[in-house]
């Protein structure tokens, strides 16, 4: 089990994260927050790239800093800015990463072929990565994160650069992988985690805002989300969330603490929660 125990991260006088407490067991966790909220800071600390100013992160009861390589052996990480060597082919890059991950030499080639097949890059495995599209690069990133069959898989904005088809395929892949491991999926694209996350972590103002199931989180807005046809009279208390097209024409979706006359109450979704929670953040 991965414990994030009272973790605070400061950069000089700026507090990037404050007193974060999380307890993660096997499953998929969606880390949801707008840009700049501290998602990447938290993930970098879990990946041992940076260290908490206060508090600790433990795995199986031991501080991950003390566990050192024993911890990194069970870690797979796809960073937000996935970098690569332009002159390398995906095969060369994965070989290099496999060497860094201490994978046995005789298993490397088979493993790489399987993973490249999984991310649909077998056809281009010997082509230089400098000619690849953003989506193809991201798929190489996903493959390298899976090389050591990690018990903790951290994916920071994994669907950035992927087209809708690739995103769906990626989601299916995560669902397949989620059995015996902790998958932490950071994104600000709500639809990415709505369908696959067992629990949602939300950070607001650099603090943990909520850590709960999707249903419980959505229930907090139950009876507060309404839809009205475009042009309907609205009060100042109504907070417009977004507009959507449907068979009845354009509908406006509102958040309101009070009952809206003529408003059609709708079941809140994660996007509503996101827009309501972060409505004051730029």
């Amino acid at each position: 089990m991965l414990f994030i125990n009272n973790v605070t991260k400061k950069y000089g006088s700026f507090t990037a994260l404050e007193e974060i407490n999380l307890e993660l067991e096997n499953g998929v966790y969606g880390l949801l927050a707008p840009n700049g909220a501290g998602k990447t800071t938290l993930l970098n600390m879990i990946a041992t790239l940076s260290f908490p100013t206060h508090g600790e992160i433990t795995w199986g009861g031991t501080d991950i800093v003390a566990l050192d390589e024993k911890y990194r052996d069970i870690l797979g990480f796809l960073p937000q800015q996935f970098g690569y060597y332009k002159n390398y082919t995906p095969k060369q890059f994965l070989k290099y990463m496999a060497t860094l991950k201490g994978i046995e030499k005789d298993k490397i080639n088979t493993l790489i072929d399987t993973l490249l097949e999984k991310v649909s890059l077998s056809d281009v495995k010997d082509k230089k990565m400098k000619k690849f599209s953003g989506g193809m690069i991201q798929r190489v990133g996903i493959a390298q994160a899976l090389l050591n069959d990690p018990k903790i898989l951290i994916l920071d904005e994994p669907t950035a650069g992927l087209d809708p088809k690739e995103r769906v395929r990626f989601r299916n892949m995560i669902r397949e992988l989620s059995g015996e491991r902790i998958v932490i999926l950071s994104t600000h694209i709500v639809s990415d985690i709505e369908t696959i996350a067992d629990k949602i972590i939300m950070i607001r103002n650099h603090k943990l805002f909520c850590f709960d199931t999707l249903e419980n989180i959505c229930n907090t807005l139950d009876g507060k989300i309404y839809e009205l046809p475009l042009g309907s009279k609205i009060d100042e208390e109504h907070i417009l969330l977004y507009e959507r097209q449907c068979s009845e024409g354009t509908m406006q979706r509102f958040y309101c603490e009070k009952n809206i006359r003529n408003g059609i109450p709708v079941r809140p979704n994660l996007e509503d929660v996101f827009l309501v929670v972060y409505r004051d953040e730029r």
Binding site: A47, T48, G83, Y84, Y85, L100, A145
Partner: peptide, 20 residues
């Protein structure tokens, strides 16, 4: 090179880590 190519995240979080 790792900073320039943005590979430091994957390289330093690997088993070899900072010993690289």
């Amino acid at each position: 090179m790792e900073q320039h190519n943005k590979t430091l995240y994957t390289v330093y979080s690997s088993l070899r880590g900072r010993r690289i």
